[in-house]
Design a protein around this nucleic acid. Structure first.
Length: 450
RNA sequence: GGAGGAGUGGCCGAGUGGCUUAAGGCGGCGGUCUUGAAAACCGUUGAGUGUCAAAGCUCCGUGGGUUCAAAUCCUACCUCCUCCGCCA
C-alpha cells in the first residue's frame, strides 16, 4: 500500500533519471521529484489534464511526520511490553508501566488512524493520476497529432463502388444487427451461418498463430472481475461509467482480456528467468461506450459486446520496449497473413490511454469508409499497472524485488477484423472471398456468397 | 441453500496470551568431501518500509475489537475442504 504513493512520482523522475543513466532507488527518485515538481506536472500536463501535486506532497509530508511519531511509540510499546512480561515472570510489580502503556497504546491507535486517513487521501489522488508518457512519445493534443510510423500493404482497387461491411453482411445474411436490437438493444452483434463461422475462424486462426508461432500461452480467464482487479489495470476508479457493472455486486464485465489476464500474477514475485511471461486470450469484451452516441452507429466498429484476441506480456524492465516492438509485430503478422493493408501510428501524449506510457495503434484499411480504422492498440504500461497489482520479479543473485513492466495489445479485435475482411475482399457480385490463410479454418470454403 | 472443518514463510507443518527476533522438515543457495556428480555433513535462506549502512516499524486469509501485550481471545467478511440438497 505504501509503495503506491510513489507511482506517479517515480515515473516522472524516471524520464530524467534515464537520461542521466542513473537508476536509483525509489526513495532517491521521490526526493528528486520533490525538487523537480514542475517537471513532473509538465509531463502530466502534456496529457491534457492538470494535476496539482502540491496538495499531494503536503499530505505526504504530514504522513511522514505522523509515521515518525507512530513508530517511536510503537517501539516504546514493544520494548516495555517485553519488560512487563519479564517483570511479571519474576513477580515484580509492573503496574506503573502498565499504566504508561495504556496511554501509549491509545496514542498509537490514534496515530494509526491518522496514518490510514493520510494513506487514503493520497491514494484517492494517486489512483486518478495517469501514467507518465515515455520520453520518446511525441507531445500532442489529440488524434490529429499522432505521427504515422509505417504503411504496409496496398489498399485494394475496386472496379465498382465498394460497399460498407454492414451492407455486405446483411445482404449475405451473415450479419443481422437489426434483429440483435430486438434481442438486447443497440450495438450488439448477431452473426449467422457463415458469418458466425468466419468469426470463429478468425479467432482460431489468431490464437493458433500466436500460440504456435509467437510463443504465447493460451488463457481463458473470467469474463467478470472484481473492483480491485479493475483498479489494478487502471480502468477504475476513474472510468467506471465505461463499464458494465453487475447489479447488487461489486463485479464488472471485462472491457478487454487485458484486465483478467494482466492480473493472473497479481501480488506475486516472479523469477527473472520466467520473463517475459506471454499470454494470449480471446474473450468477449463489454463496453458501455458512454459518450460515443452518434459515433459509428452502423456496423461492427463500435459495439457493446465484441470478441478480441489480446496479447499480454509481463516483461523485464530492461527490455520492455523491445517487447513492445515485438508485440506490435506479432499483431501485425495477423494482418499480413490476412492480406489486409494497414498503417501503424504512435499515439501522442494527448491521445494515450490513462495507464499507458507508450502506445502504437494499428489501423486497417476499410474500403467502405475509405480510411484506416483502429484494429489494435499496443501499449507498454511500464510499472504503472504492476505497481497497482503488485507484480514483481527478483533479479538473479540479488536481494529484494522489483516491479515488472506490463504490456498488451490486441491481436486483433475480431469484430473489426471481420468487417475489414468483408470490405477488402468483396467482389462485384456481392460475394466475399475468404483470405487464403483462413480457408483451412472455414472448412475449405473459399467464398462467402448467398 | 443447510451442517460441520480449515486458512501460518516457495512448499509441508508446529505454535491457543508475554525471550515467537514464527520450532522442525522439504526445496533453494553457499561450502566441505569427490575426477565430476550423488549421498552425507556444515552454514545460509520471507516480504515491505527505512538508512550511506544500520537501528527501528509493519506483515501469520481480510477488516474491526479486547488487552500493558494477539499468529494465539472475540467479531464480521473472504476463500478452500467435507457431508446433504439443488443444478449445466
Amino acid at each position: 500500500m505504501f509503495s503506491l504513493l510513489f507511482y506517479a512520482l517515480y515515473h516522472a523522475a524516471k524520464i530524467q533519471i534515464i537520461n542521466a543513466d542513473n537508476i536509483g532507488t525509489v526513495m532517491l527518485e521521490i526526493k528528486y521529484v520533490r525538487k523537480n515538481l514542475s517537471l513532473v506536472e509538465e509531463a502530466l500536463k502534456n496529457r491534457g489534464g492538470h494535476v496539482d501535486l502540491s496538495a499531494f506532497m503536503d499530505i505526504e509530508k504530514g504522513r511522514r511526520e505522523i509515521l515518525q511519531t507512530l513508530e517511536t511509540l510503537q517501539n516504546r510499546r514493544n520494548v516495555v511490553s517485553a519488560d512487563i512480561a519479564r517483570m511479571k515472570k519474576e513477580g515484580v510489580n509492573a503496574e506503573d508501566l502498565v499504566l504508561e502503556m495504556r496511554d501509549v497504546s491509545a496514542r498509537v491507535k490514534e496515530l494509526e488512524k491518522q496514518e490510514a486517513e493520510a494513506d487514503e487521501a493520497m491514494s484517492r489522488i494517486l489512483y486518478t493520476i495517469p501514467n507518465i508518457p515515455h520520453a520518446s512519445v511525441p507531445v500532442g493534443k489529440d488524434e490529429n497529432d499522432n505521427p504515422e510510423l509505417r504503411r504496409v500493404g496496398e489498399p485494394p482497387v475496386f472496379g465498382f463502388e465498394p460497399k460498407a461491411h454492414w451492407d455486405l453482411g446483411e445482404d449475405l445474411r451473415i450479419l443481422d444487427l437489426e434483429r440483435a436490437t430486438k434481442i438486447t438493444g443497440a450495438r450488439f452483434p448477431l452473426y449467422l451461418g457463415m458469418g458466425a463461422r468466419l468469426e470463429r475462424a478468425l479467432i482460431n486462426f489468431m490464437l493458433d498463430t500466436h500460440t504456435e508461432q509467437h510463443g504465447y500461452k493460451e488463457i481463458i480467464p473470467p469474463y467478470i472481475v472484481n473492483r480491485n482487479t479493475m483498479t489494478c489495470t487502471g480502468q477504475l476508479p476513474k472510468f467506471e461509467e465505461d463499464l458494465f457493472k453487475l447489479e447488487g455486486l461489486d463485479y464488472f464485465l471485462i472491457p478487454t482480456a487485458e484486465v483478467p489476464v494482466t492480473n493472473i500474477h497479481q501480488k506475486e514475485i516472479l523469477a527473472e528467468d520466467d520473463l517475459p511471461v506471454k499470454f494470449v486470450a480471446c474473450t468477449p469484451c463489454f463496453r458501455s461506450e458512454a459518450g460515443s452516441y452518434g459515433k459509428d452507429t452502423r456496423g461492427l466498429i463500435r459495439q457493446h459486446q465484441f470478441n478480441k484476441v489480446e496479447l499480454v506480456k509481463l516483461a523485464h524492465p530492461d527490455t520492455s520496449y523491445d517487447e513492445l516492438e515485438k508485440l506490435t509485430a506479432d499483431a501485425e503478422t495477423i494482418l499480413k497473413k490476412l492480406g489486409l493493408a494497414y498503417r501503424v501510428i504512435t499515439l501522442c501524449t494527448g491521445d494515450m490511454g490513462f495507464s499507458a506510457a507508450k502506445t502504437y495503434d494499428i489501423e486497417v484499411w476499410m474500403p467502405g469508409q475509405g480510411k484506416y480504422r483502429e484494429i489494435s492498440s499496443c501499449s507498454n504500461f511500464e510499472d504503472f499497472q504492476a505497481r497497482r497489482a503488485g507484480i514483481r520479479f527478483r533479479r538473479k543473485g540479488q536481494k529484494g524485488s522489483e516491479l515488472v513492466h506490463t504490456l498488451n495489445g490486441s491481436g486483433l479485435a475480431v469484430g473489426r477484423c471481420f468487417a475489414a475482411i468483408l470490405e477488402n475482399y468483396q467482389q462485384a457480385d456481392g460475394s466475399v472471398l475468404v483470405p487464403d490463410a483462413l480457408v483451412p479454418y472455414m472448412g475449405g470454403a473459399q467464398r462467402i456468397s448467398l
